[in-house]
Amino acid sequence: MSSTLTKPGPGPEAAAGTSAAAHKITATFRIRRYDPEVSDKAVWQDFTIEIDPKERVLDALHQIKWDVDGTLTFRRSCAHGICGSDAMRINGRNRLACKTLIKDLSPEKPITVEPIKGMTVLKDLIVDMEPFFQAYRDVMPFLITTGNEPTRERRQSAADRERFDDTTKCILCAACTSSCPVFWNDGQYFGPAAIVNAHRFIFDSRDEGGEQRLEILNDKDGVWRCRTTFNCTDACPRGIEVTKAIQEVKKALITRRF
């Protein structure tokens, strides 16, 4: 495709396959259902629908909820991967339903959708997020400074700003923490997301609370529990190098340099 756009042509939409004549396929969604008002057992339920494979899994869940079964329950808001509401386990892997296209999931086979693991399921795909946010709050995820505030902004070089850029992307969706085998076995572990958010401040040149945060993460349920399985990095919908961030925090604990 020419970038000068001087000739009329099929245009990039042809490559994108989003032309008006989008074809639909038949896809089956095998969804883990649980409603304690109905039964104390979770069950799998299949929904077979006609859908354009370029659509998101979230679109499929909406189609099911809106046109087939209104009791299907899940969280969602922005629908484009920025609010962090709809992390779920899709075909055995943690992803955001709104950032996963059906065509990328081998839709000729049933697509499984279940709640993220290691957290208490409250209804269908909704889990209890409170322990997750508590771990986040426990690492003091805010800028800590001493002395008088400057009148203008604090100066920070572009390189110092870049140092923690990766971990500022976190949307607290819990895809990483709920993909971690250590967390599955021990819910007391802070988990990758809390460590990522500690990293975001430990490596911010403006911050003076690094030592306190490192002490918190030196705890028996802190960074040393990490077994570097890289599940978290694979799961992150924002592309954060989560395992690397955890390793950097471990290193900072040993060298006390950050």
Partner: peptide, 20 residues
């Protein structure tokens, strides 16, 4: 308002001088 956010920790992009 912008300066308050910076003091709260907001990681703005920076100029070569280190300002916002």
């Amino acid at each position: 308002s912008v300066l308050d956010l910076e003091k709260m920790g907001l990681p703005f992009n920076r100029t070569p001088d280190g300002t916002i």
